[in-house]
Write a protein that binds this DNA or RNA. Structure first.
Lengths: 266, 266
DNA sequence: TGTTCATTGCGTTATTATGACACAATGTAA
DNA sequence: TTACATTGTGTCATAATAACGCAATGAACA
């Protein structure tokens, strides 16, 4: 099937496969070069970027729809996934925008389920950046990582969805040790700290941070140091999956508390 | 319009007013006689109870749909409302159940948007019990408060939705002072404490609790004590809306922490 | 080959938060 | 008047944590 035909098919008969009015959008976070990044698709027709998203098959759990989308864009299977909010503004997607897209694609369609209102459920995912192979979908020119502080213009309310995802991630990370999902199996303490600092948007004391992390019992130090680094080589650590699973339930001490701070700030 | 006709109309033409596949369910919490309660509707056809719920008008925000439902059941306008999760099990509602209902209502319908799959978005609401006048909808026999520890059998996955709501409320209350929404304008410290103990499912020390609450700066003591009470009369307190709004953003100290406890337990 | 220096690993100290508990004050009921 | 359950206020010991010191490491450079 040609792309044009595929698009037409989706607009005309997609509602036979998918649920009407509901979509899923994924905010995929990765951490690389001491920067928090998010994976976006280039929506060529709009010259803007979009969160990877999709629709829910008629017999599919929403979580599975999100997993399917993530698998397609990242190639990854078992990733940390969290539903965080449903967005329902009646004006969040418009018929006009769809017709713009169809025009660019060279298709003309009068009526479509895609022109109707959509409520989208936001998920955020935490992935190991090094394991991801970004794959664009057939209507996007490319799929790329963006530093969360240098985001391009985004379609619809995707910027807002991203903001909410980050807010949720921040709260989550403060009480649950989910950050490990963003790192490779082996990581150094400075890497982990930078991850926390980036997400929580707050400077942390190096020595207190280490103590707090070790107190959780989640990480184990390996008998191996990082090679080829300037200055003193840091140890590698891994996290203990059993302890981690436990800590996910009970939570850990907050990193951003409400105790008065004299010196450290943002 | 008769009830029978109304039901038939809803099944046959409801999809012209409402979005397909999406519903909203509300877990309405109230606090009375030192007990946490939830407002349920009696679904006569199933001899079970249901969370107040409904559908989303074609041009309506989901939050507004939830508010509309709450207004109908409680008569209240401005109440604390929180979206907490979307439930998407394809089997959560079934055609069979709908037909059971229609049979009991004396209607016969072959096809309906109501037979299709629904994803429901859960909201929880915190209301002032004394202000609520429970109103049943036209397909329910009654609308009643239930102690959360003595819940009746519920339809569909409503029991699960309730459980998730309580879990979310617990987490919320631990870090944000949302509990005040469940009390009248004036309340005593023992009342507030009982509220926290009930929701958090944990005994708290009376004196430390008072210290912690006062430290938030949210409550003001009034120059008035409770009357007609056995033993020493407690003072009344109110909460300062300005301080409260601030605290909603920044959060407060956790009531259930991870610090080892020697004596207090559940 | 020795020096420099940013960074790491492993501490200590001071302060704050909080769990545990004592005791006097209050006001109804016996 | 007395008994007693409950409230209001305060103290103490300890755990948590913010702040900070210092030696060890190892690449870069003279």
């Amino acid at each position: 099937m040609t792309l044009e035909k595929e698009i037409k098919d989706h607009y005309l008969y997609g509602h036979k496969k998918f649920l009407r009015h509901i979509s899923v959008d994924c905010v995929i976070f990765g951490f690389h070069d001491n920067e928090l990044k998010v994976l976006l698709l280039h929506a060529a027709y709009a010259q803007k970027w979009a969160l990877p998203g999709g629709f829910i098959l008629k017999k599919e759990l929403m979580d599975e729809a999100a997993k399917r989308i993530l698998k397609q864009r990242t190639g990854l299977d078992k990733i940390y996934l969290q539903q965080f909010h449903a967005f329902s503004d009646p004006e969040r997607s418009t018929k006009k925008m769809n017709q713009q897209f169809l025009k660019n694609a060279g298709a003309k369609i009068e009526n479509s389920w895609m022109f109707e209102r959509f409520i989208t459920v936001g998920y955020y995912a935490l992935v190991d950046f090094t394991k991801v192979i970004p794959v664009a979908d057939n209507i996007s020119k490319s799929c790329e990582w963006f530093n969360i502080n240098k985001l391009p213009e985004m379609i619809l309310d995707h910027r807002n969805i991203f903001n909410e995802a980050l807010k949720n991630l921040r709260m989550q990370l403060n009480f649950y040790p989910v950050g490990f999902n963003l790192l490779a199996k082996k990581f150094t303490m400075p890497e982990l700290q930078k991850l926390y600092e980036t997400i929580l948007h707050k400077k942390l004391d190096r020595r207190n941070f280490q103590r707090k992390i070790m107190a959780t019992g989640i990480v184990k130090r390996l008998n191996e140091t990082k090679k080829n680094v300037a200055h003193k080589a840091p140890y590698y650590y891994t996290f203990d999956i059993r302890q981690y699973t436990q800590a996910l339930k009970t939570g850990v001490a907050a990193f951003v508390g409400r105790r008065p701070i004299k010196k450290n700030g943002l």
